[in-house]
Amino acid sequence: MIKLAIYGKGGIGKSTVSCNVSAAMAKKGLRVMQIGCDPKADSTSLLRGGERIPTVLQVTREKGNALALEDVIYDGAFGVKCVEAGGPVPGLGCAGRGIINALETLEKKGAFELCKPDVVIYDVLGDVVCGGFSMPMRKGYADKVFVVTSGEKMSVYAAANICMAIDNFKGRGYASLGGIILNRRGVEDERSAAETLAADFGSSVIADIDRCEEIPAAEKAGKTVAELFAGSRADEQLSCTAQAILDAFGGAL
C-alpha cells in the first residue's frame, strides 16, 4: 500500500486532480481510497456524480463510538473508495482538530484493513495552517506529498510554504516531497515558475496538466474526465500524472 497527500493553494484544483488521479489509478486496476481532509467535504464529489457523502465527523457526532466504516466509506467511479473527514460549522470549532479526530477514527476502526487499498490519497485543504492540517504528512499516514500549483505568483507562494513545512518536518520522519504537479492557468512562463519552485526544494515537476475544456466540463457534470472524455488529451495527461505519482514511489506497487 502506498499513501500520498495532495496539497496546494485553495482553489488550485487539488480535489479535481485528486479525483481524476484516483480514477486513472483505479482504471489501471489499482484499489484506490481517497480521503478528503477539508471541512467543506467536497473532495470526492466528482467520483460520486456530484453527490456529497456523510462525513466521518458528522457520523461521529451522531453515533459516537458506534460509527461503522460502512457509514463513512462509499463507492465512487471505477470503484474508488470515497471518504470525507468533514469539519465544523464555518466560523466555529476547530477544523484542524477535526482532521486529526477523523483520521484517528478511520485508523482505529480499521478502514485500511477493511478496504485493503493499494493507494490511499489524502486530499488536504489549502495551506498547512496548523497541526491538524499537517496530520496527513505524519509518520504512518502519507509517505509522500505532491503539491499542486499553477504558475501564478500566489499559488507558487502557497506551494513554497507547504514545501517549507515538509522540509521543517524532515527530522520527524514525516512524508517527503514527492514532486510538483503543474496545473496550468495559462499565465506567462508557468512551466519555468513551477520548475524554479521544484528546484528550490530539490524536487521536480512530475506532471504538467494543460488548461483545457474537458476538465471544467467534467467538473460541471460532476464526473471525472475518465468517465466523460476518455481518450481525450486531458484524460491522457491525468493518466500520466497518476503514473508519475506511482513512479515517484519507485515501483512500490
Binding site: 484542524g96 482538530r97 486529526i100 496548523c130 497541526g131 505524519r138 527530522g171 520522519g173
Partner: peptide, 16 residues
C-alpha cells in the same frame, strides 16, 4: 490534543 502535538515525533527528537 487540541493543537495536535505529535508525541511520537517529539519523542524521536528528544531521543536523538
Amino acid at each position: 490534543m487540541m493543537t495536535g502535538v505529535d508525541f511520537d515525533a517529539v519523542a524521536a527528537e528528544v531521543e536523538a
